[in-house]
Amino acid sequence: MNYSVLLSQMLGATLMTLRIFFVTLAFSLPLGLLVAVGRMTKVKAVNLPVRLYILLMRGTPLMLQLLFIFYGFKPIFGIQLDRVPAAEAAFVLNYAAYFAEIFRGGIAGIPRGQREAAKVLGFTRRQTFFRIVLPQVVKGILPPMSNEFITLVKDTSLAQVIGVVELLKITSDWVSSAVSMIPFAVAGVFYLVMNAAVTRCFTAAEKHYSYYR
């Protein structure tokens, strides 16, 4: 087994893993916030579809969603999606649903008096949300968010079911061709390092927000 080739291929595949990770976050966090707001409105025409969406995303396997988006897009929309964008789309849609529920809990946890104080001071609803409510929500949802981020790092390995070559896919190819367990151990270390970094970021964020109760 050529270790330098193994390592360089695994590092290359890790870039794909990181790409899926960051693209998913970049789109699913804002989308999740939007979904959370939609979930909380009393307008039925918005609320009901949003609830259905959350149910679908949380109630079916992520792997099924990956397969459905990759293989189902062409028959429905007539265009063949590339593997990586299909994977990213599935992750974004799936994680937005989870993030939405976290945001919703966080928003509901802000005391009503905060909105009332803002209203009496003349803030618009928009200002109240972005200046008063959301900054406080961020502090409150850091622990559940860190769980989701860590899960996402590991979930990226599911993208291989639609042929995306990410870290775990490369690794298992090496294991079967070289008949060695060493690549598995190396991959484990790679995932651990990524999640240690995620954990560090969250610890830093929690420390940053500790300036107030």
């Binding site: 008096g113 905060q114 104080a117 803002a118 009496v120 003349g122 406080q136 107030y212 109760r213």
Partner: peptide, 17 residues
């Protein structure tokens, strides 16, 4: 009209952040 009035709450409702 809202700008003409101020309200002080029993439990302050200061913005903690």
């Amino acid at each position: 009209i809202a700008l003409h009035v101020g309200l002080v709450f029993q439990n302050f409702n200061l913005f903690p952040h």
